[in-house]
Amino acid sequence: MDKGVDEAGWDVEPGDEIEPVVQAVGRLVKVCREAAGVSVSEMAAALQYGEDMVRKIERGARIPRPEYLERADQLLKAQGHLRAFGEDMRRARYPKKVRQLAELEERSVEMLLYSNHNIHGLLQTEEYARALLGTWRPAYPPDELERMTTARMARKSVFERSPAPEFSFVLEEVTLRRPVGGTMVLRRQLEHMLDVAKLPFVELQVMPTARANHPGTGGRIQVLKFADGTGMGRTDGDFGGRPVSDPRHLRVLDLRYGIIRAQALTPEESLVFIEETLGEL
């Protein structure tokens, strides 16, 4: 993979609503370049990217990384006009469905998250996430795999909000034992979870496999609650797997999650369980 593909940015997804913004930023880059009297070839050489990459960014076919805009701003003496779009482009380069989820998570004041197959994305380390995404079929091309991994890691910034949302995670025991990426990757993943579980706004619980009868058998559950009293939820088992916001549907998910939460190990017992699982690796 050449540097231009890996570092300059990502292709715009067809039909993505972010496309007009990317095109506007590309036109601004071109205007600044021409005003500075810098040719495409000169800019490509100065920034160490291919000329084709520079042209793709300027016509809005490529989402530039914030680092690209920072360096272009300095080269073209754009007085911060290009740099100002860095955060917009940081968000734009994530896949549309990931960007939409991240926006909902950033609005949330409370998150109820039940995972039955894999450790929840907000709890994953980068190496675990990359290994897990690498198991999907059809397989992601290398650059798309890195894009998905980067996007998943970016969502974890929600932990740094002030005030942070209240998190409740319930994970099936199997998610702690499946050696995604190998034993050492799993060890570091479990150690990371122990650290996250110590945050004052995080409650992490484990559902033992021996709990035969609980309503999580229908699949994952996610409920996000917002400051205005509204919410968004989804589950694999109902509503066609689509997000729902109807209060009647949210009550169903709340009820289901509440039972799961009550049947799982307590947070204190869960930490001991994870530590014991670590000791077995």
Rank of each mutant, 00 (worst) to 15 (best):
E146W: 02
I119V: 15
R178T: 12
F169I: 06
A129M: 09
N116W: 13
V180G: 05
T125K: 03
M148G: 00
F159G: 06
R188P: 07
V170A: 02
F169N: 04
V185I: 13
T125Q: 05
H117V: 15
T149V: 08
T183S: 14
V185L: 08
M184Y: 11
A154W: 12
M153G: 10
E144L: 10
H120A: 14
M148T: 03
P141N: 08
P138G: 01
G181S: 05
N116E: 13
K156E: 10
R137W: 09
S168H: 14
T175E: 05
L171A: 15
P179G: 10
Y128E: 01
L171I: 14
P179M: 04
P138F: 03
E166Y: 14
A129F: 02
R137V: 13
F167K: 05
P138R: 00
E173S: 05
F159R: 01
G134Q: 03
R188E: 13
M148Y: 11
L112E: 12
R187C: 08
T183D: 13
D143G: 00
E166H: 14
E144H: 09
H120C: 08
Q189T: 10
N118D: 15
T149M: 00
E144I: 08
Q124C: 02
L171G: 10
T183H: 13
R187P: 00
R177D: 07
M153H: 07
A131T: 09
A154L: 13
L145R: 03
E126F: 07
V180W: 01
R177I: 10
H117R: 15
V180M: 09
A139S: 13
R188H: 14
G181L: 02
L113V: 12
G182R: 08
G134V: 04
A164R: 09
R177H: 12
E172T: 12
E160K: 13
T150S: 12
A164F: 07
Q124P: 02
G182D: 09
R178L: 11
A151H: 08
T135D: 02
V185C: 13
T175I: 07
Q189R: 02
F169C: 09
R147D: 08
R178E: 11
R178P: 06
A151K: 04
Y114R: 01
E172F: 05
T135N: 01
R187Q: 13
N118Q: 15
R130G: 03
L123S: 05
L176R: 02
A129T: 05
